[in-house]
């Protein structure tokens, strides 16, 4: 059992509580999407799960072990996290950036082994950026760049991958592209994926497990079709909406109402 779970987790900024006493278990080998209005604490939760945020109360465990009791590098060999604040240094090339995902597997001077090279090559292949390997990251399009970051995270070879709003700044086509890629990785490798998403309908379509948050707590969680109802959308987002079946996937499709279009 390698479940990543939050137990009575409290997180905050400078004494201001953002999340209090939250319990959550990421189902193994599944895709979990966390949705909720701005400032509901969804990104903070993900950061807490990845030990990027100091814990004020409760704990986060991995396979039963408190993650703060693990050496950071050991945790980084089991849980990968792609934060929103990633920076591609000026002039860095794709293969070089992806190779930095090997850091938790290396010693102080980061000597490269042939093992590392093979892992990096596989990561480049499976994200479809192998032919870009020698290009500077700065020259790539937004969609390609995000694939490169995913490749770096894959080179980390973890069973669990956390992503904080990986589709932000991408157009619809590239959003679908990226979510398809993550689904592929989940199916082919059995990687547990958890991500914060803004787009409710895509979250409902791609997630096995949907977590709806509001004001630092979980409003509802479970299979999207069971979770994403008119009531839950109203409670979490304060939004009047109709929920109809997605004509493509059959998952819930949230159609917001607004003030000027009363609807049928």
């Amino acid at each position: 059992m390698t479940n990543l779970r939050a137990e009575g987790l409290s997180l905050g900024y400078d004494g201001l509580k953002v999340i209090e006493g939250l319990d959550l278990t990421l189902p193994d080998g599944k895709i979990t999407a966390v949705v909720g209005p701005n400032a509901c604490g969804k990104s903070t939760l993900l950061r807490g799960l990845a030990r990027l945020h100091p814990i004020d109360g409760g704990r986060v465990t991995l396979g039963g072990t408190d993650i703060t009791a693990m050496p950071r590098k050991e945790l980084a060999r089991k849980v990968a996290m792609l934060p929103q604040s990633s920076i591609a240094p000026d002039g860095v090339r794709v293969a070089e950036l992806v190779a930095r995902g090997r850091y938790p597997h290396q010693g102080w001077f980061g000597r490269h082994s042939s093992d590392d090279d093979a892992v990096v090559a596989t990561a480049l292949e499976s994200t479809g950026v192998a032919e870009l390997a020698d290009r500077p990251v700065a020259e790539l399009s937004g969609g390609q760049r995000q694939r490169v970051w995913i490749a770096m995270v894959l080179a980390q070879q973890t069973d669990i991958v956390l992503l904080d709003e990986p589709t932000t700044f991408l157009d619809v086509r590239h959003q679908l592209d990226l979510l398809d890629l993550l689904t592929e990785l989940n199916r082919d490798r059995g990687t547990t994926v958890a991500m914060v998403l803004h787009e409710l309908n895509l979250a409902a379509r791609y997630a096995d497990h949907l977590v709806v948050m509001s004001a630092g707590r979980i409003v509802a969680e479970g299979a999207p079709s069971a979770v994403l109802t008119q009531e839950v959308v109203d409670e979490a987002f304060g939004l009047r909406a109709q929920v109809v079946p997605d004509p493509v996937a059959g998952t819930p499709l949230v159609v917001p109402v607004g003030r000027f279009h009363a609807g049928a």
Binding site: R47, A50, R51, L52, P71, R72, K73, E74, L75, A76, R77, A80, M81, L82, P83, Q84, S85, S86, I87, R100, G101, Y103, P104, Q156
Partner: peptide, 8 residues
Amino acid sequence: DVATALGQ
């Protein structure tokens, strides 16, 4: 954040 997530 990335450096920390990579175990540094």
